[in-house]
């Protein structure tokens, strides 16, 4: 379990990029849910924490691929492969993530361990 940040530092509508390898994006939706997914879009190397959060969807700032934060599945092209989702734990007003152990779907040219 990796600590992300104090809950107070992640207001609703905001994102936090966790600098692990590969990086993880943690989102606090307007509805108050907290989700963690891979930060790197599966289409091309771009940071989803810089993207646009709407409901449970995150839109990539580069080519407007959208992903459902609950499942990691792409809901709008050009991305075809899903993001991994990571379990979120909030304890003592701190946000933690439990990284997925599945292999990530990183875009071409990006490999884990090269960050």
């Amino acid at each position: 379990m990796i600590p992300v940040c104090p809950l107070a530092n992640l207001p609703r509508g905001e994102a936090h990029r966790l600098d692990v390898d590969p990086p993880i994006a943690v989102f606090h939706t307007e509805d108050g849910e907290i989700y963690a997914v891979d930060d790197t879009c599966t289409h091309q190397d771009a940071s989803l924490s810089d993207g646009w959060l709407e409901g449970c969807e995150i839109e990539c700032p580069l080519h407007a691929s959208s992903f459902d934060l609950r499942t990691g599945r792409p809901s709008s092209p050009p991305a075809k492969l899903p993001l991994r989702t990571h379990r979120v734990v909030v304890s003592d007003d701190t946000v933690y993530v439990v990284p997925s152990e599945e292999p990530p779907n990183l875009p071409p040219g990006v490999r884990a361990g090269t960050v």
Binding site: D39, Q44, D45, A46, S47, G51, P61, L62, G109, V115
Partner: peptide
């Protein structure tokens, strides 16, 4: 945002660079 149609450098409405391919690197 304003996105350059050439390499997709992307700027927010205040002009700040917010995204570009491989920008995180």
């Amino acid at each position: 945002a304003f996105q350059c149609p050439y390499h997709a450098w992307t700027y927010d409405l205040e002009g700040k660079l917010i995204a570009a391919p491989n920008l995180t690197k």
